[in-house]
Write a protein that binds this DNA or RNA. Structure first.
Lengths: 126, 126
DNA sequence: CAGCATCCGTTCTGATACTG
DNA sequence: CAGTATCAGAACGGATGCTG
């Protein structure tokens, strides 16, 4: 459980088998929940003020209604977003991020930073 | 390009559309390269001293030879690992991490930390 | 040992159409 | 608007067998 020490030795052979197993499982857990093509994109779009279904679909390039629907369901199940029905006829539904989604801040930051760096590296001829 | 400012405002609506687009693309790039079920697991296993093909397959629970083969190829293409053939008859092949793989340290750390926290939350009855 | 080729069932995805 | 239903094609993934 000394996850605070992982930063110091993530790629060494000095960690114990137990720590390795924990590390593996933790990363696996994280990727299971927020991995995939769309999860984080949906969260980012929601964070940038898009709240309605069709609005989200327009904001997230390339996602289909069916896939967006599924992603929203899973995100709700995992406690990242809240689905609120505001009226009837016409139905207005809003999706909003929960406070729990803020716990992804470091993950998002690290991914964005690395992705940006990686793109620079690829563009500049490796 | 001010990725260093993202930590301060990852979920606000105050970011510009351009920054939003960059952010989305960067995260997408990152997930494209290191996302999926196995990529980071293979890297972690390599970091913990496993170098040979069958050794890796044993270390990474549940991966098949075909999938491991594909993952290793992609990781090599992306510059994370090096494939070295040491002898002939019998063939001995070693995979090792490149220095570039160390750039994933923050990403791994963030994912592991979050995954650990998330599991705790789930176990403790949400 | 270190893989690749093949078969084959499951899953994922997109496109289209339809409902309340 | 906010989705769901359906279908067909693509992609994934495991099991097996084979090679050098």
């Amino acid at each position: 459980m000394p996850y605070d020490t992982l930063e110091e030795q993530p790629f060494t052979e000095t960690v114990t088998p137990a720590a390795c197993s924990n590390h593996l499982r933790a990363v696996g857990d994280a990727l299971y929940v927020i991995g995939g093509k769309w999860k984080l994109r949906v969260i980012i779009a929601l964070g940038h003020g898009h709240k309605r279904f069709n609005e989200l679909q327009r904001a997230i390039e390339g996602i289909s209604a069916r896939v967006l629907s599924n992603e929203l369901k899973e995100l709700e199940l995992n406690g990242f977003i809240t689905r609120t029905v505001h009226t009837q006829t016409p139905v207005v539904v809003e999706y909003t991020l929960t406070p729990y989604s803020a716990t992804l801040k470091n993950v998002m930051g690290a991914l964005a930073e690395w992705g940006y760096m990686h793109r620079e590296k690829i563009i500049n001829g490796k």
